[in-house]
Design a protein around this nucleic acid. Sequence first.
DNA 1: GTATTGAGTGAACAGCGTTCACTGTTAACA
DNA 2: TGTTAACAGTGAACGCTGTTCACTCAATAC
Lengths: 234, 234
Amino acid sequence: MNRRDETRAAMLAEIKRAARRLLVSGGVAAIGLRAVAREVNLTAPALYRYFPSHEALITELIADLYDELTTALMELGCESEGDLGAQLYLLANGLRDWALAQPAEFALLFGTTIPNPDAEGHDDTPGHQAAMRFGALFKELVAQIWHEKPFPYPADDVLGTKLVAQLSDEAAHFHGMPPGAIYLGLTYWTRLYGLICMEVFGQLHWVLPDAAAYFEAQLYEIGLAMGLDCPAPE
Amino acid sequence: MNRRDETRAAMLAEIKRAARRLLVSGGVAAIGLRAVAREVNLTAPALYRYFPSHEALITELIADLYDELTTALMELGCESEGDLGAQLYLLANGLRDWALAQPAEFALLFGTTIPNPDAEGHDDTPGHQAAMRFGALFKELVAQIWHEKPFPYPADDVLGTKLVAQLSDEAAHFHGMPPGAIYLGLTYWTRLYGLICMEVFGQLHWVLPDAAAYFEAQLYEIGLAMGLDCPAPE
DNA sequence: GTATTGAGTGAACAGCGTTCACTGTTAACA
DNA sequence: TGTTAACAGTGAACGCTGTTCACTCAATAC
């Protein structure tokens, strides 16, 4: 490790930190090339020594945020001391808190149209891989919950043959859970995502002034369906 | 109505049409001031005779899209000939089809952070009002379904007192439905929104290659909870 | 018939992402 | 140790963006 390599790595980290600071304070639009350069006392063209383009900088930033969020949620889950239901509850609430605290970052990760990786040029970008790692965290937790205490799940015939086929293909990632159980786990994630999206994007306060109570009730309802004894709303 | 006013109105409409064309073809970023001007054979500064700023143009475009979507879904609902359950089903599927066909427009309407209107400077922008009209369409339909055939709903104590209070405040917009029933109707909307968001933003194909089957199963499930006899997935 | 309003233009400004020729400095190799 | 090559960084420039301003020309109003 040369001294040049060291300064380079340090500079790279500092650039990303600056970009992140700008993202939090002023949204994606604030991450201008010149703005970032100004923040680290450099000129704009100098950044091209570290990133091939402005878009690449943001892509790397996304990957970093994904990993950061993943580890943060994992650490949060460790507080539950083996209680898997509580862990899922903490994960859901942790994700919501994070999203509400940094809506710009949430929108960047979860509110941007991601090109389908299966479509021909399936890009193995670091962003995609980081997103997969994040998804794996959730899949793993659901699978553990299932194997610890299986919950009742919808029969195949109410799901439809097409969906059952797709869910069966996913069984490997869920430690061999039956399609209906995977469906229920997926429903948890879908509803959680939808709730947070609605709140962050302000789509909820035209009917509910305080979404927190609604969020808790929803979490309780879907947690109950998965056989978890989550805290009931007061 | 002067001849000058006529040409002005015509020009205004043509500008919006051009902006919309650019939105569909290339996303929000494509709606450049000069690009729009080029499309209507004008120079960029000329557009300032019609819109105070670039942002205002996009805001008006959003309002137009909301209204357009609202009427389109209402017309779609009329095909159901009085069957309210079918109408809700058509609305849900219509919204999804529209979102998938024009993801850029969907992201603009539903995937952008909207400032809380209750917060101090409560803006009565045309965009907000249009969004309210869109929301009213859904509320109205849910209320009609309820009054035609009430469905079982969660008791107040599983929702929590805070949520029940908020839902009670909303009862007027739902023709006096009980809190639990409003909760169920709201759940329908929340889940629908979440599902479409996930699909449009590409957050679903890391686990399900074809979201259509999943969407149908979810719609069936929540429709069942509201006492509707929606078509079961095959 | 004259004054006024309005639409539209072209030039200009600051800022954007990006490229290029150009400096120094640092590492690698003889 | 001296030479060479790679590297970090700069300043100028290009074409683009939203926006402003002075200006022209036609249509309306009195």
